[in-house]
Amino acid sequence: MTNVSAPRPRSRGLKTWSSFGNLGRRPTEYEVLTWNMNHTAGSPALELGPDVNGNVWLREHRDGMRFVVPSWDAFRDPDQVTYGSYVAMQDDAETYVEGLLAQFDADGHDAALPGGALDVLAVALAPCRFLGHGLQMLSAYVQQLAPSSFVATAATFQTADQLRRVQTLAYRTTQLARAHPGLGFGTGERAAWREDPHWQPLRRLVELALVEYDWDRAVVATQLVVKPVADLLLLDALAHRLGAAGATLDALVLENLAKDARRSQRFSVALARFVVEADPGNAAVLQEYLDAWAPLGHEAVADGARLFAADEDDVARVRASVTQDWAGLVTDAGLRLPDA
């Protein structure tokens, strides 16, 4: 219809999404791009018969949850991450790591690694790619049943962080295998992850969390137990130990990966606080779930510290420091970490 003069559409424009209602302020870009995208809040959740696979799963594992939250979309990720800000932030982080890799390579870092450092790298660092994959699966589960797109989107970025960790570890493990053939880099990690007794409580924790399908319990297991314990132990404490042992490059790389973990922890704390504040009964439910999972977390810390600690005193120091930080996170969330 180009041969008639068309009337212009009537302009009765909106300032923002009508579903914001009366927000009383201009929404942030993060809010505009994240708000109200869970379309499965009805009954049945999916536009299908009530007894199809997807609806049964959501009914059993999401809609039966014990958290009482009137408006899940009131949650906000403290970091307000959008896709655009995520790729920009992570590109900067990867550029930094790339720079580290180039600089330390030029300095012949790997060839000069002391034996003690190599042991820690082989036993504690390289097998973390299995742990990373486990955390990736767990994070994806938190995403896919999340009742709000604000929760789901933060979990999406957390999931992607885990792939970053796995690929970074694969890179470093390959470099170490080339610099030190015969030490089992690239070949021994699966056996370590599956058989080294110090890894086993952590592996058990990950495996059990994988089958925790009820979303409220899964959130507690992943966000308040598995992820913080694994990250505090095998990013922060391990970085510290590697630095002391002379594995400076890996210490710096882990410190950078730990920034992703810190973002995840802010998300976890905010989510738990949000749930606690949403209804007076929620705190007891969260605490009950945490009480059930915490002993496994404590075991993972206790044995995991032996993966890399320098001596018995160091084991105690690592345990104390990881437990203290974990307890701090749980306290920030408005809960209490049960004693080991």
Partner: peptide
């Protein structure tokens, strides 16, 4: 030695393990 993607990619996807606890 700095690596290309194909040098390390194989290892990055070697992340499955036999589950023992579930």
């Amino acid at each position: 030695m700095l690596l290309t993607r194909d040098d390390w990619y194989e290892l990055s996807r070697d992340v499955d393990w036999e589950l023992d606890h579930v």
